[in-house]
Design a binder for these strands. Sequence first.
DNA 1: TGCGTGACTGCCT
DNA 2: CAGGCAGCCACGC
Length: 127
Amino acid sequence: MTNDTRHPTYERVYEVVRAIPAGRVATYGQVASIVGHCTARMVGYALAALPDAYADVPWQRVINAQGKVSPRAHSASTALQRELLEEDGVSFSKEDKVDFGRVRWAGPTTEWLLAHGFDPAPSWREK
DNA sequence: TGCGTGACTGCCT
DNA sequence: CAGGCAGCCACGC
């Protein structure tokens, strides 16, 4: 990667989301913590602006802290997200919430963080 | 060329 | 215990 051009925040967000394995989910805040110098809303912004060219980004695996798919302007997108997650093997309760205790992503490994140029800050893992 | 807007979360009162 | 506010990038009109 070019070192003279730092990856924009959105690009870093996509990078982290790509690391989420199928059958696992992460929250906006969790992704933000991993990216660093980034807020949960920023992650939401990044995913909302996700270009079609980034089809390899499993955006459906990012949900809100309540364990539910975040409602938005285009409800069809919300339904699609849930559908894609179920295909990943993620089940929802009758309250439309996922079981964090079972599908919560543990996060990337320290070597992954280093290999991708992220700060291996342990703060988000201790939590 | 400037402003509004868009997939959120945690702390404080 | 619940509601409110601050945080802050990129893109389109």
